[in-house]
Design a binder for these strands. Structure first.
Lengths: 340, 340
DNA sequence: GCGAATAGATGAAACGTTTTAGCCGCTATA
DNA sequence: TATAGCGGCTAAAACGTTTCATCTATTCGC
């Protein structure tokens, strides 16, 4: 019950307190016989290190935090898994905090983390404005790495995925397939990802210089239901104006479009091709497997963690870096049929 | 950079160190004027409490841990959200640890958590065997609450959902609709949930005492692909033996069945009715919205957290409890059509 | 106006570790 | 033989809080 401390271990093993500490932290500096005696004492007493005391002495903890917008979002869960891997390999511990897109909760989390003197923070901040809380951490010397948001700040590292390139990839693919009337589906446009993916698609179209055209349909959100509604609207167009391909800002929209089209008797990809974004688990499992732009999510987490550890370890010799990953187009059946 | 401590605050405010502590912890015991002076000093120095020192003194931390089998599994993410809510309301912090179904990682996490003297642990343990690591925590006086596994241990609380009842609900519903040939799909049977849900279905069938029959099709796992394969096999049966309803051990299987059936030209629910389990987000968004058995996932988390806090606070007056929640059938289109 | 109670503040001890300076006895070197 | 070096260990300081016993004015009851 009452947890044994290092002093009791020392007494039990007939050595000084410092020797026990040495057994724990620099085992090779203590004679084998003594070491064994101490280890025996540790097991018989069921001694467990007290991390608070250790941290107090060390001045900082061995845990790293990741603050995500939504623990239930597959994007973040994959990022977490990637980061976890690196952090655990380094012998540290990753704690996951959920801001839930609520800046008050975010602030509260950061305050607590600061009190805990965490080794560093990986974070996708709520909103896009200035970040006084994060600045405060950085001022204190706590490394902060931005994940998928706010790239380019001078005083911290960041990792992100190039959404403009993602839009480009999707568009290039559809143009390669010979589509002339293409729709981009997404919204609200205030979301940077929605805007960037559109920008990429538009840029690709312009560069190709052909006669193809891109129609934009703004949705109110990025859900399956919104995809269905948008598909209905597309179907209401006169046949000659109707797009032969739809590029969706995420996979949920794309699945909604797929469902509505097939329900109305259209064939995918023969009548309408579809490309989604995110390559969620269900993309491959859909009735018609969905082409999608895949982001290297776990690598995002891994790299973020590596940058963090580098900053935490190398201190002032550290140079902040902004790593941008390239997404990748996964072509599946939903868009795999050239136009004549 | 160098973080100010309580002593510097005291000096800056011209009071003793104890007074600063009082301002922080028992503000009403210190005169308003002094209090204000201290608060001013705190803000000008940018003082932030050192939690390690606080914990060291207190003997335990203010964080609670939840150890889940998979951070990316929607079941657990919802449980986490529920627990989070309660824990944060109590002014504590919830840290999420991922065992990834790996007992070595689980052990390592528990060791670290023990070193950190966490306030308590919510956990879905890997495997079903004895739990020496957890026993060790309990011996130390650290409250442990089991989540959705291992109900009934005498020395700890637990929360779970009644899977047998879930199977019953689904079966009763299908029988109510007049189905006579029903299939249960799921596997491997070594998974307790798969077995329990089947047991519930079988029990319901027996109690009704009608002429209906239940055919069991064992799948190799619980994925969309497995659902498709199983559906193929069902379709290969002679029409007279073919089930008119399928109850699936989870929603992924059910979605696979739905896809394969519609791809083969059968109508759901007119030709075959489907009921899934878990009520995942996509159940409602499927081409034919899926009936499913819903588990009160966030409530599972909330209750687990409440039990934990009760044990942590009330100490020896605490009585261990085993709370079992009842699942609920959500009827949607996939099974909403009575047989003649 | 006197003793008692009380509000407000103080100083020191304690929490459990890590680290550093130093001590002791031995061996290798000159 | 003296000295330096070294392996192995010890003792004590330091980390930053919280708490508790104590002290000093001030207020209250009579």
């Amino acid at each position: 019950m009452a947890t044994a401390n290092i002093k009791e271990v020392a007494r039990h093993a007939g050595v000084s307190l410092g020797t026990v500490s040495n057994v724990l932290n620099r085992p090779d500096t203590v004679a084998p016989a003594t070491r064994q005696r101490v280890l025996d004492a540790i097991t018989t007493l069921g001694y467990v290190r007290n991390d608070s005391a250790r941290q107090l002495r060390a001045g900082h903890s061995r845990t790293v935090a990741i603050v995500v917008l939504d623990v239930a979002n597959p994007f973040f869960t994959d990022v977490v898994r990637g980061a976890e891997q690196v952090i655990e390999e380094a012998g540290a511990m990753l704690v996951v905090c959920n801001s839930g897109e609520d800046s008050a909760r975010e602030r509260r989390h950061l305050e607590l983390l600061e009190e805990q003197r965490v080794r560093g923070v990986l974070i996708t901040p709520v909103g896009h404005g200035p970040q006084p809380n994060l600045d405060k951490l950085v001022d204190r010397g706590i490394p902060v790495v931005l994940v998928d948001r706010g790239t380019g700040r001078a005083n911290r590292c960041s990792v992100a995925v190039d959404d403009v390139l993602g839009g480009r990839l999707a568009m290039d693919h559809l143009l390669d397939q010979g589509h002339q009337r293409i729709a981009y589906l997404g919204g609200p446009v205030s979301i940077a990802q929605v805007a960037d993916r559109h920008a990429g698609a538009a840029a690709a179209l312009k560069e190709r210089g052909g006669t193809a055209e891109l129609r934009v349909a703004v949705t109110s959100n990025l859900t399956v239901a919104a995809g269905r509604r948008a598909a209905e609207e597309l179907l209401a167009l006169p046949a000659r104006q109707r797009p032969t391909a739809v590029f969706c800002a995420n996979d949920l929209l794309a699945l909604g479009v797929l469902q509505e089209l097939t329900a109305r008797g259209l064939r995918v990809p023969a009548d309408v091709a579809i490309v989604g974004y995110d390559d969620i688990e269900f993309a491959d499992a859909a009735a018609v497997p969905l082409s999608s732009v895949r982001q290297p999510r776990d690598q995002l987490g891994r790299t973020a963690a590596e940058l963090l550890l580098d900053e935490a370890d190398s201190g002032d010799t550290h140079r902040h870096r902004h790593v941008v990953f390239q997404p990748e187009l996964v072509v599946r059946r939903s868009s795999d049929q050239p136009r004549r």
